[in-house]
Design a protein around this nucleic acid. Structure first.
Lengths: 195, 195
DNA sequence: ATTGTTCTCCATCAAATGCTGGAAGCGATG
DNA sequence: CATCGCTTCCAGCATTTGATGGAGAACAAT
């Protein structure tokens, strides 16, 4: 039950954001009374933070998976694999990217400072992609590039409802276009001669 | 007064999103009673939609300005100008990009279908940048590329509080890094030989 | 001064929302 | 069966929040 609630919370929080979500919405989504929800998770904020921690772990795993997959490959191949894997994962779990974007851009009333551990990920990706040679010092440029890529992926997935009508294509084709566009833009950038 | 309220609403809605914003927060920001706010703008939703329309017009103007600036320039120069102008504008008005991102990714309780006229912009940019030759038919690839660029810009600006600490740099340097990173990634992509 | 218009605020309401107490269901154990 | 622990739900409380009515201030026109 705790798991079912957590999954529903992730979904609803991802769609409507923290303030846009009411505990009753989550409870209804699970099919239980609010009291049951409070019995298992306590305050709304606690549940919200639990979702964050849950997502943190899931994404860490996913990036680890990518890291293992790209070892020894060429830079182009590494980028392609990373884009494909992340897109497949996020398209299958669209609430994830939505949730993360809310965390990035939305303030939460009352104090906040919720920590989503992207920072470590960014560095790890930069190294895995070969953008940084020394683990001790990762250039600002490398980090910023990874952030840009990371965001591009999230945006295309979360913004599907918004962007797909503009392109006038179906869902499956959208996935292909997104992957192609990301590769089209990113691969030349990272494989160009460093100036 | 109507103007002051609209400006405050834009700011607060941009920070906290629709549901995260209360009419009292906006009124307090202006320094007036809520009743005064309701007197001028009626329902919260009306005020919200007014902000959207206001932003629509402002962005249309900004893109028009860019369009006029890039005429006759090379593709590389066009991209650089577009990135610089948009970054300068959005860094000076960070609530704008935040607001737009909320529109993209956040559902609003109750019925929604608020229309933010990005679709036209996307096509116009594609043409202005020379990614599409025929105004009648703009390739999906061109549109998708423009969307990716557009999103990248918004993300860097709205996510400054999130990303800047990762890079461990100051605000002014952040602006420079963002512009450079965008150019670093985008220019090679669009100037590469089409395959 | 009177009148009328516009604007602002105080007090307040009704609904929504976060949250809780207590009673009842239910399965395991004795 | 009786008891215990765990879980679920009903009913309700306190606060927040969207929204309004009415009284008064500011000000202009006559």
């Amino acid at each position: 039950m705790k798991g079912k609630i957590l999954a529903a919370a992730r979904k609803v929080f991802g769609e409507y954001g923290y303030h846009g979500t009411t505990t009753r919405m989550i409870a209804k989504d699970v099919g239980i009374d609010i009291s049951t929800l409070y019995y298992h998770w306590g305050e709304k904020r606690d549940l919200y933070e639990s979702v964050i921690m849950d997502l943190n772990e899931e994404i860490r795993q996913k990036l680890l998976e990518i890291e293992n997959n790209v070892k020894g490959k060429s830079l182009t191949a590494r980028l392609e694999i990373a884009i494909d894997v992340m897109c497949d994962y996020l398209f299958s779990n669209p609430e994830v990217s939505n949730f993360i974007l809310f965390l990035y851009f939305g303030k939460t009333r009352g104090d906040s400072s919720l920590n989503f551990r992207v920072s470590e990920y960014i560095s790890n990706i930069a190294i895995a992609m070969g953008l940084a040679l020394d683990k001790k010092y990762i250039p600002v440029k490398a980090k910023a590039s990874v952030i840009a890529v990371w965001n591009s992926v999230l945006n295309f997935i979360s913004g599907e409802d918004f962007f797909r009508p503009m392109l006038d294509i179906g869902h499956d084709e959208y996935i292909v276009v997104v992957k192609d566009t990301l590769k089209f833009i990113l691969i030349p950038a990272f494989t160009q001669k460093q100036s």
